[in-house]
Every structure is written in C-alpha cells, then in structure tokens.
Amino acid sequence: MSTDPSEIFRRYLSAMVLNSLASAEAAGLNATDYYALNLLDLAGPLTSGELSTQTGLTTGATTRLIDRLEKGGHVRRVPDPADRRKVIVETAGQPEDLDEVLSGTRRRIGELLRSYSQEEVATLFDYFGRAATAYQEATDELIRSRTP
C-alpha cells in the first residue's frame, strides 16, 4: 500500500464515492436521487430552483428528479407560504431499508473512530467540517463557471 499522501487521500475519496454509489443502488436509488435526498435531509426543504442550483442539474432534470422521488414516496411538493407561485420540496420519508443498507458502513466507521482518542476524533471532525466547506465552495465555483 502506498504511503504517498496524495494517493492515500485519492484512494480515500474514491472509496467514499464508491460506497455512496453502492449504497444508493442497494437502497433502490440512482446516485443523483440518493444525493438529492441527503441534500434535502441536511439543508431542509428547498425550492425546486434551490435544489437545481445545489445539485448542478438543469431545471428540467430537477423536475424529473423531484418526480421520481415523489413517485417513490421520498419527497412531497408543498406550496411556499411566502410565495404561492413557488413550490417547496421536502422529505417525506427515507427508503425503507436505508438504515439496513448503511449499517455495515456505519459499524465499520464507528469502530474506526473508537480506535482514536477524543482529541484525535475532535481533530478529525474539525477537518471534516472545514473540508466540507472547502469542497462546497470549490463546487459552487465550478458550477458558477459553467453558467453564462
């Protein structure tokens, strides 16, 4: 196994992406639908325009995404109380077997985290928080650069 920090980090990111793809498939979702549900869970209800912006999808693709998720019982469209012309998308329930699908990953990561001291775990979670912000900012920058 390589000791090159760049290679180790790339391997880590690849493993996370592959695990997410496999988890989505095991839960009966495609990767975009899985990501959108996670996004709605983290951000709370969003307008279809906000969901489009945050996923980087076109408005048409976002409508089809919402249709699929609504048909599966995972989201619902509700009128925006501030502007009845807008629709808000909110979660209506996660896939029934999602907890079971994620149990192996959660167990393994939990075991890994328990092998670290409290101070090390605090450092890891400090990194996760800062890295999430850095990745989101880089993603936003990429999305803005595609928009005329």
Rank of each mutant, 00 (worst) to 15 (best):
F9Q: 12
E141C: 07
Q118R: 15
T32I: 08
V17N: 07
R144E: 13
R106P: 01
S14H: 10
R76E: 12
M1R: 14
T47C: 06
L39G: 00
G28R: 01
D140I: 07
D99G: 13
R114Y: 12
R107P: 00
D80M: 04
R77D: 05
Y116L: 12
E7Q: 14
A61L: 13
T133M: 10
D83M: 01
L21H: 05
L112A: 14
Q118K: 15
S2H: 15
A138S: 09
L142E: 14
R107Q: 08
L51V: 02
E50G: 03
Y127V: 05
L37W: 02
Y35L: 05
T32C: 03
R108E: 13
L124F: 06
L21G: 03
E119K: 10
T55V: 09
E90R: 06
R64L: 15
E70N: 05
L37Y: 03
N30L: 04
T91D: 00
D83A: 03
Q118G: 11
R64T: 15
G60V: 08
I8C: 02
T147Y: 03
L112M: 13
A36L: 02
D80W: 03
S103R: 10
I88H: 00
A138F: 07
S52M: 10
S103A: 14
F9H: 11
R68P: 00
K86R: 13
S103L: 08
D126A: 13
A132S: 15
P148Q: 08
E7T: 14
E50F: 02
L124M: 07
I143R: 14
A31F: 07
E70R: 07
I143E: 09
P45Y: 07
V89I: 11
A15R: 12
V101Y: 03
L37V: 05
P81W: 08
G110R: 06
P5T: 12
E119H: 11
R144L: 11
R64G: 12
P45L: 05
T58L: 11
G28A: 04
A132V: 14
R10P: 00
E90W: 00
T32G: 02
S103M: 05
Q54K: 14
T59E: 06
V75S: 04
E50L: 04
G60N: 10
Q136R: 15
T47N: 06
L102M: 13
T32K: 04
M1V: 15
V17Q: 10
D4M: 01
E100Q: 08
A61V: 10
P79G: 12
R107T: 05
D4K: 01
P79V: 13
H74Y: 12
T58S: 15
N30C: 05
I143H: 10
A43C: 04
G73F: 07
D140C: 05
I143G: 04
L29E: 03
Y35T: 03
F128A: 13
D126L: 11
L13P: 00
M16F: 06
T53D: 09
R130I: 03
N38I: 00
T147Q: 08
R85K: 15
L142W: 14
P79Q: 15
S115W: 01
G44Y: 02
R144W: 07
E111S: 09
D67L: 01
V87F: 01
D33G: 07
P79S: 14
D126F: 11
E120W: 05
A43W: 04
T58W: 10
E50T: 05
A132Q: 15
Y127S: 01
